[in-house]
């Protein structure tokens, strides 16, 4: 079984975010980056399926040079190969442009299964995996919290609202968009980190994928980001000031006498 895993490098959840000078995106200088949370679970899921079925795991990312680090991490925990779409032409893509590039990789690789996260922590479209499936003419499932692969089909547990899950069967090949919590991602061992250095990372340009540069990145996108900003706070919270002991006493006092909830 040949499994493709689409991963994205995004600012770490702890990163302090500020709009960039142009105001169109955030300032990416000097902030920590990490593998998108859902994608870590997708990597783990792929590796454990490959361990059971003797398959190959290929991680794919559309992202700048820095995203090489995310691929290395995936290789260090057990992915076999990586594909890096790092060309400038891919930059600034929306879900349409990114899915188009990922679909071209999928066609070239003939994957039996593609795993993605359900949502990226930066743009957070939640649509890239499904659009990819649609472009490939494959079925998909979004928000997957359980996956069992057996000859030619997959049993999928999909999250629904309000603490319910839906059990589904879909044919393979398919795109399965996993949700955080589906498994316990493993840590890289020292040996894994050493081995990762020798694993193949293929860089593919749009021409390598038989795509015109106008089909990918900002040029191939339907959405244009005009500005990012910190959301308005509205009335916001009354922030209590003082040292820790003081604010604690103040809060308890306010909860008793002002809000009357204690």
């Amino acid at each position: 079984m040949k499994i493709g895993v689409c991963i994205k490098q995004v600012p770490d959840t702890e990163a302090r975010l500020r709009p960039s000078a142009s105001g169109q995106w955030i300032d990416e200088e000097e902030i920590p980056f990490a593998i998108n949370e859902g994608d870590e679970y997708a990597i783990e899921e792929a590796i454990s399926i490959a361990e059971q079925t003797g398959g190959e795991v290929v991680v794919v990312t559309v992202g700048p040079e820095r995203a090489r680090e995310a691929l290395r991490k995936a290789l260090a925990v057990g992915a076999h190969r990586a594909v890096h779409l790092a060309d400038e032409a891919y930059a600034g893509g929306d879900c349409w442009a990114t899915a188009r590039a990922l679909a071209a990789v999928a066609n070239r690789e003939s994957f039996d299964l593609i795993l993605t996260g359900s949502q990226s922590a930066d743009v957070g479209f939640g649509t890239t995996g499904t659009l990819l499936a649609s472009m490939l003419g494959w079925p998909h499932a979004w928000l997957v919290v359980g996956l069992e692969v057996a000859d030619g089909s997959a049993k999928v547990t999909r999250e629904m609202e309000a603490g319910k899950n839906e059990l589904l069967q879909i044919g393979l090949p398919a795109v399965v968009e996993v949700q955080a919590g589906i498994n316990k991602p493993r840590y890289a061992s020292l040996k894994g980190i050493m081995q990762a250095k020798r694993k193949e990372v293929a860089e593919l340009s749009p021409a390598d994928l038989e795509l015109d540069p106008s089909q990918v990145g900002a040029a191939g996108s339907r959405l244009e980001f005009l500005s990012v900003s910190v959301p308005p706070k509205g009335e916001g919270a009354q922030i209590l000031e003082g040292d820790t002991a003081e604010v604690a006493t103040q809060l308890v006092d306010k909860l008793r006498t002002e809000a009357r909830v204690l």
Binding site: G124, F225, L226, V230, P231
Partner: peptide, 11 residues
């Protein structure tokens, strides 16, 4: 964007 920590205007 960024899980609600920021918001974006898009066209």
């Amino acid at each position: 964007v960024f899980a609600g920590k920021m918001q974006a205007e898009v066209r």
